[in-house]
């Protein structure tokens, strides 16, 4: 059964990869539109991944190490975006930034999320945050706090102990988490579509480009975008497994 399924997956991938002629793919890759999509995807996914790291690492550390009132509730809520359809998350973000006083205020100081690349970043961040958080939490949970105790008796402050001992020991989980967060960021479609829209050459990431070109019959362009996304998924899955990510998720 597993073999049949694996065969089916390989067939699908090969079909996508071999459908257009190689020259057509190269030609599409050279167009301004696909290059813009690659550029925008890279920039937004890298920024959203950095944001995820910045928030998820300390949050995961405190969830792993400390007991506090309402911890299990917070923990469940933070995992919620995992189960939530990205489209719904996108609608929520759209309403938050488009209709609330907070959104209006941010807009008045020039920070606009609706129908802008900034919206793509916030969408990727919101949807992918739980992945980074879960992986980092289980990574920290697996590291005995006694390493930090020993580091403290050897002259470290609490922060130094985390920085010099716990974080270096968490490096594999960190890399696995960062790679999967980045790969999911590049592929993010639903939530980004809702808040940032699908405007050619403005909020056109690779998945949006695939969608736009497919809708207007530009098959070669669409499939070029699909091939790039496919390669990114394969490579990042490999890296994720290399750092033992699936054991931590």
């Amino acid at each position: 059964m597993g073999l049949v399924l694996a065969g089916f997956i390989i067939a699908l991938l090969l079909l996508v990869a071999t459908h257009p002629s190689p020259s057509a793919v190269i030609e599409s890759l050279m167009t301004k539109e696909i290059q813009f999509a690659i550029y925008l995807s890279l920039v937004t996914s890298v920024i959203s991944t950095l944001l995820c790291i910045l928030i998820a690492v300390p949050a995961a550390y405190s969830l792993a190490r400390y007991d506090f009132w309402g911890k299990s509730f917070v923990s469940t809520i933070l995992d919620l975006p995992l189960a939530l359809p990205p489209l719904v998350a996108g609608v929520g973000l759209l309403l938050f930034f488009g209709t609330t006083p907070i959104g209006d205020f941010l807009e008045s100081i020039g920070i606009v999320f609706v129908f802008t690349p900034l919206g793509i970043i916030i969408a990727q961040f919101f949807v992918n945050m739980p992945f980074m958080l879960r992986i980092m939490r289980s990574t920290f949970t697996d590291i005995s706090p006694r390493y930090e105790y020993v580091a403290c008796t050897l002259g470290c402050t609490n922060l130094q102990a985390i920085w010099r001992v716990t974080l270096p020991m968490a490096i594999n989980g960190f890399l696995a988490g960062a790679v999967i967060t980045w790969a999911k960021g590049i592929g993010e479609f639903g939530a980004a579509l809702m808040i940032a829209g699908a405007t050619r050459m403005k909020t056109e990431t690779l998945p949006i480009s695939l969608f736009l070109n497919m809708s207007c019959g530009e098959l070669d362009m669409a499939i070029s975008a699909a091939i790039i996304l496919m390669v990114i998924s394969l490579v990042s899955l490999y890296v994720f497994e290399y750092f033992g990510g699936s054991a931590k998720f």
Binding site: R146, Y149, V150, A151, C152, T153, G155, T157, P168
Partner: peptide, 19 residues
């Protein structure tokens, strides 16, 4: 805090920093 006590500790399972 521990760092100002000059007391050091050894555990059963060593707790050597693996990196």
């Amino acid at each position: 805090p521990p760092r100002e006590r000059n007391i050091t500790m050894v555990y059963q399972d060593y707790m050597l920093f693996p990196h």
